[in-house]
């Protein structure tokens, strides 16, 4: 019984959304400038977020999985903090660090005249901040499960660290890396709290799909529903692409 309850609880809201949405408006809405902008920004920022995660998150995951250094467990704990941090708090924290008068942001403005908040860069930074832990944990797990044994064999065959990483560690962890990318991407696509706090909600520059849905919810609920449906469809499509990995019953 409790299991059925949980399943119903998870499914009903989605069914309601699908049933309640005026499907006929879908195409007209997709044609409006606001929605197209929001979709474009969401697509761009989520792609950039995944890119950043791969570039800097992969080395961090490798470090945590393979190198035994003092403070490793502390570092891992710190990496996981954004995972449990309320997104709004993350946004406030980012503003304190990178805002106009922030710890880093103030210096940056003094030196270069650049400011970060309320730009598309800020959106990406906010997304990367909340998505990185998911990515790092997934990839670290992949590095761990592929084992240091193969790395050792590669070393005995004369391979240096970089060669070993490129030719052995990375190819073996590739499925985990892809899963990490999907997680980071989904987290970025749905991110709202940190984004709106740190980057604002300006149409055309920082208004992502979730921000647009929030805005429409204040006015036209129907439009908000239709937009939500679009995001749901995108998520289902990605889940479909990933089903080989996650929906397979062991």
């Amino acid at each position: 019984m409790p299991a059925a309850l949980a399943a119903v609880f998870l499914v009903v809201p989605l069914v309601a959304l699908v049933v309640d949405t005026p499907w006929s408006d879908l195409w007209t809405l997709l044609g409006t400038r606001e929605v197209r902008d929001a979709l474009r920004i969401s697509a761009l920022t989520s792609a950039a977020t995944v890119g950043i995660c791969v570039l800097v998150g992969t080395p961090l995951a490798w470090l945590l999985a393979r190198v035994d250094f003092p403070g490793r467990s502390v570092l891992r704990a710190l990496v996981v903090v954004p995972l449990v941090l309320p997104p709004v708090v993350a946004g406030v924290a980012l503003a304190s660090a990178l805002g106009r008068n922030g710890l880093v942001g103030g210096t940056l403005r003094d030196l270069t005249g650049l400011t970060i908040p309320f730009t598309m860069t800020a959106v990406v930074i906010a997304h990367a901040f909340v998505a990185m832990p998911f990515f790092v944990l997934a990839v670290e797990g992949a590095f761990r499960s592929t084992g240091a044994g193969y790395d050792a064999v590669a070393a005995t065959l004369g391979a240096g660290r970089w060669t070993t990483f490129r030719r052995v560690t990375l190819p073996l962890a590739l499925p985990g890396l892809l899963a990490g990318c999907a997680l980071a991407w989904a987290r970025s696509l749905g991110e709202f709290g940190a984004t709106i706090t740190f980057a604002g909600n300006f149409p055309g520059t920082t208004q992502t799909m979730p921000s647009l849905i929030y805005t429409e919810l204040q006015g036209d609920v129907e439009v908000a529903r239709t937009l939500s449906l679009i995001l749901l469809l995108v998520s289902v499509l990605v889940l479909g692409a990933m089903r080989e990995r996650w929906l397979r019953v062991p």
Binding site: G149, Y150, A152, V153, A154, A155, T156, G158, V168, L172
Partner: peptide, 20 residues
């Protein structure tokens, strides 16, 4: 001396061939 600079050949039980 680093592992990769030693000239050792390893063959352990369970072959440990690179699966990819």
């Amino acid at each position: 001396r680093l592992v990769r600079e030693r000239r050792v050949g390893l063959a352990f039980q369970g072959h440990q061939l690179f699966p990819h």
